[in-house]
Amino acid sequence: MTNIVRDAVASTTVAATRESVWEALTTPEQIKKYLFGSDVQSTWEVGGPITFAGEWQGKQYQDHGVILDAEPPGLLRISHYSPLSGKPDIPENYHTVEYRIEQEGDASKVTITQGNNSNEAEVTESEKTWQLVLANLKDLLETE
């Protein structure tokens, strides 16, 4: 029997337009401010690569993936692999990460969903991390 593990999901409401949120999700200078100092490179075109480089918990990392879907200003979906996972760099070990932006009045609801988690502990840890990322994004957009 296959063990089915749920997606990690985190969301918040930001007092900003969908377009402002989209810009923050796709502008390397802004990403660095809320995503733990990550240097991100991508053309943001479907099928194109995306890389993340930086330091996490004292370790250097160079993560990578592919843009799976991009529908500005509402949806960005990528694949993501981190060598820090200790797993081989094969498709089964990639997460999917979806950023969904929905207008709610004068604000935007931002939801991040991470799929292909290996166990419930990974789901729990990922949800904590994504909530922190969203809190950082909210602070960035609401204090500009």
Rank of each mutant, 00 (worst) to 15 (best):
V21M: 04
E23H: 13
E23T: 14
E23C: 01
A24T: 01
A24Y: 03
A24P: 05
L25T: 07
L25Q: 05
T27Q: 08
T27C: 09
P28I: 05
P28Y: 07
Q30K: 15
Q30C: 00
I31M: 01
I31K: 05
K32H: 13
K33L: 12
K33D: 00
L35T: 03
F36D: 12
F36L: 14
G37W: 08
G37D: 09
G37A: 08
S38R: 01
S38Y: 08
S38T: 13
D39F: 00
Q41S: 13
Q41N: 12
W44E: 12
E45A: 15
G48D: 05
G48F: 04
G48N: 05
G48E: 02
P49Q: 11
I50P: 03
I50M: 03
F52E: 09
A53I: 03
A53Q: 15
A53M: 13
Q57N: 15
G58R: 11
G58N: 02
K59Q: 15
K59P: 04
Y61S: 05
Y61Q: 09
D63R: 09
H64F: 02
G65D: 00
G65K: 02
V66N: 09
V66Y: 00
I67E: 01
L68N: 09
D69S: 13
A70C: 10
E71P: 00
P72H: 05
P73W: 13
G74R: 14
L75A: 08
L76A: 10
L76G: 09
L76E: 09
L76D: 10
R77I: 15
I78H: 01
S79A: 06
S79G: 03
H80Q: 10
H80F: 06
Y81G: 02
Y81N: 05
Y81V: 00
Y81I: 03
S82P: 04
S85K: 07
D89P: 04
I90R: 10
I90P: 05
E92D: 14
E92Q: 14
E92P: 01
E92R: 11
N93K: 10
Y94I: 02
Y94W: 07
Y94S: 07
V97S: 02
E98G: 01
E98Q: 15
Y99L: 10
Y99H: 15
Y99C: 09
R100P: 04
I101K: 01
I101Y: 08
I101V: 15
I101Q: 07
I101H: 03
Q103N: 11
Q103T: 15
E104S: 12
E104D: 12
G105H: 06
G105S: 11
S108Q: 01
S108G: 05
K109Q: 12
T113G: 06
Q114R: 07
Q114G: 04
Q114Y: 02
N116L: 07
N117A: 06
N117K: 08
N119V: 02
N119E: 08
E120N: 12
E120G: 05
E120V: 06
E122L: 09
V123N: 02
V123R: 01
V123K: 03
V123Q: 05
T124R: 08
E125R: 13
E125M: 14
S126G: 06
S126M: 03
S126W: 04
S126C: 02
S126L: 04
E127F: 05
K128Y: 13
K128E: 14
T129Q: 11
W130G: 01
Q131C: 09
